[in-house]
Amino acid sequence: MARHPAPRRGPTRALALVVMLVSLVLAGWAARGLLDEPVPEVDAFGSSPLSLGLPSPSATGMPSSPDAPHLARSLPRPARAPAALAPVAEGREPVRLRVPAVELDVELEAVGVATDGQMEIPDDGDRAGWYRHGPRPGDDGSVVIAAHVDTRSGPGAFLALTGVAEGDVVRVELADGSSTAYRVVGGEQVAKRDLPVDELFRRDGDPVLRLVTCSGDWSPGASSYTDNLVISAVPVGPTEATEGV
């Protein structure tokens, strides 16, 4: 009687194999889901998306008087200024960003350029970085504030940008206690390789605020998302600024 329980072994092993394969498929599918499209897609909206740009930067430099035929008569009389060392100005750095419509409220750090040539982003997913080499709120040009859509440990502050809509009020507080209000006019998801960095980081022309984060698919090989999400906002007057906050 003490024979091998052979008839029972086959089905057990087959069942275990099937369960194992199902488990592997499940794990693979879930892992694929983890890697694919973790960030909600955002359709472009608004009338002033990044690729269209805003009116071109104003011309700079001295007039060259090309129509004056004689050199001596075309000589401009240049303006002049003392060549003394200028004091270093402080106080107008942006320190806080709020978008009440999506309950976004983050502290800002002044950031520059990382060693790889890309914009520095605060490691802390709850903070955003203001590109300190570019314009400050109130200046001409494009004020750039960026933050992580996620960190390795979870969502980042700018995941909220995926819910921003045209007309939302954005408020940037400065170190001197003043604040500048903006109204969202457009949003666009751009492939990173096509990101128009000259336009995004322009230092003159009409004032605009650009909020930037990542979007698209997660590329494990490159350890980065394929796209950037760029929200554009323009300054609003003092009366308009009191609405919606």
Partner: peptide, 27 residues
């Protein structure tokens, strides 16, 4: 700058998927 690297790939709204993946591996 060359670009804006603003994500690290750990989005938590995929937490359920993470649980499924771990459960699958455990199974």
């Amino acid at each position: 700058p060359d670009g804006v690297p603003s994500g690290q790939g750990g989005l938590a709204d995929t937490g359920a998927l993470l649980v499924l993946a771990l459960a699958g591996v455990a199974g």
